[in-house]
């Protein structure tokens, strides 16, 4: 950030279009925010509103009873819980398995290391969408369809996580490792007490990505969930909203309930999220 700021600071008074650019930036920002703001306003309109004058969507009367109605009429709180639980479990398991594997590849001398690392790398080229049909059969034959385990475990093996953590662990000086070894540290303690704490930024980036990916995952839960008790937000929302077509208020309230937690999380973790995007270059 600082670099960009400096480079342009130099030319501060020389950009004749700065005001126009600012204006364009703000107009575009409003366009990007508009649907979200509209959703939030609709969610606080009385339920039987029918509106054709666009400005009226944003004017009073307001009410918060819709939030109570959707909690009574839909299972949105259950979906929220399921999404949170699956997201947290997926994230924790991903961090554990990827960091263990990355530690071995980065810090332990063993045979066929190169081969194993390349084998893991190859996984990045396997598009999950194209193997979803056989995945369905495999999870079915393991009797894990329609279970939490079946929703969580297939999402845990993240080759990109191993790669990022490996490159981070590589930065931990070997002298530090050697001196710890002389002090009688086992590999387990090296992993847990020395390497992991140093890799916190990378772990945070992976955690945020894994969680957002899981929170928004559609295709796999769409196939693997049958019971309504397991519905996540992306699956529950369409099941509820598709029953409405003329009144928008309750569907937008459900959308708002699903979105407000992630918007708040975004505002808190914006820096880390932005860093994570640029760090990994992964698409969500």
């Amino acid at each position: 950030m600082s670099k960009g700021a400096n480079s342009t600071l130099l030319q501060r008074n020389r950009d004749p279009f700065i005001r126009i650019k600012m204006l364009m930036g703000i107009i575009l920002a409003s366009v990007f925010l508009f649907p979200i703001i509209w959703m939030l306003f609709v969610s606080i309109k009385p339920e039987d509103m029918s509106i054709t004058d666009p400005i009226k969507w944003f004017l009073p009367p307001y009410t918060f009873t819709n939030y109570l109605s959707v909690m009574a009429e839909s299972d949105v709180l259950l979906w929220l819980w399921n999404s949170a639980f699956i997201g947290i479990a997926t994230t924790i398991l991903t961090l554990i398995v990827t960091s263990l594997a990355a530690f071995a590849i980065s810090k332990i001398k063993f045979r066929y290391k190169k081969f194993i690392f390349l084998f893991f790398l190859a996984g990045m080229m396997v598009p999950g969408e194209a193997t979803i049909i056989p995945l369905f059969e495999i999870v079915k034959s393991m009797n894990m369809l329609d279970t939490y385990a079946g929703l969580i475990l297939p999402m845990v093996a993240s080759p990109i996580g191993v790669i990022i953590l490996k490159s981070f662990f590589d930065g931990v000086p070997d002298e530090l490792m050697e001196s710890a070894k002389i002090d009688g540290c086992s590999h387990w303690r090296l992993y847990w007490n020395i390497v992991l704490p140093l890799a916190k930024p990378a772990m945070a980036a992976i955690a945020i990505f894994t969680f957002i990916g899981s929170w928004n995952n559609f295709l796999w839960p769409f196939l693997a969930i049958v019971s309504e008790e397991l519905y996540t937000l992306p699956i529950g929302i369409p099941s509820f909203n598709s029953t409405y077509s003329t009144t928008y208020v309750l569907p937008m309230t459900v959308n708002a309930v699903a979105s407000i937690p992630v918007i708040i999380a975004f505002l808190i973790f914006e820096k880390q999220i932005v860093k994570g995007v640029s760090f990994t270059g992964i698409k969500g």
């Binding site: 649907p35 979200i36 509209w38 959703m39 957002i212 929170w215 928004n216 559609f218 937000l233 992306p234 699956i235 929302i237 369409p238 909203n241 569907p251 937008m252 959308n255 699903a258 979105s259 992630v262 918007i263 975004f266 999220i273």
Partner: peptide
């Protein structure tokens, strides 16, 4: 960061 279901119904 919004879910595909949310943006679709918006």
């Amino acid at each position: 960061i919004l879910s595909v279901s949310v943006i679709s119904y918006i």
